[in-house]
Amino acid sequence: MELTAVRTFVAAAEAGQFQEAAGSLSITQQAVSKRVAALEKELGVRLFTRAPRGARLTIDGQAFLPHARALLRAEERAAASVRPGRRPLRVDVIGRRAATAGLLRDFHGAHPGTDLDVMTLYSAEEAFAAVRDGTIDATFRAVTMPGLPLPEGVEATPVLDEPLQLVTGPAHPYAAADAVTPAQLAGRRIWMPANRSGTEWAAYYDELAAAFGLTVDAIGPDFGVEALLDTIANSATLGTFMSERTPLVWPAGHDLRRIPLRDPTPVYPHCLVRRTDNPHPALTALRDHLTAAARPRLTAPEIWTPAWALRAAGPGRPQQGN
Rank of each mutant, 00 (worst) to 15 (best):
P182Y: 06
L160V: 06
E200H: 14
T181Q: 12
V180N: 03
R196N: 05
A202I: 14
L148I: 08
T135S: 05
E207I: 13
G187V: 05
E200F: 02
H172W: 11
A209S: 08
L121E: 03
A130T: 08
A177R: 04
A129Q: 06
A211M: 13
I190V: 09
L185C: 03
P163C: 02
G169C: 10
P151D: 09
A203Q: 02
A175Y: 07
A176F: 12
E152V: 14
P158G: 01
E207G: 04
L166M: 03
P193S: 04
T157N: 02
A202G: 00
A156G: 05
D178R: 06
A176P: 08
Y205L: 08
A211G: 11
A129I: 10
A156H: 06
T157W: 09
A127M: 11
D206L: 10
E162F: 04
A194Q: 15
Y204A: 01
M192Q: 03
Y205N: 02
G153W: 01
P193R: 04
T181V: 11
R132N: 09
Y122K: 13
V167R: 00
A209Q: 09
E155F: 01
W201D: 07
E126Q: 13
T120G: 06
D206C: 06
G187P: 00
W201T: 14
P170M: 10
M145G: 09
V118H: 06
I190M: 07
P146D: 10
N195W: 07
A142W: 12
L185T: 01
Q184K: 11
A202Q: 03
F140Q: 07
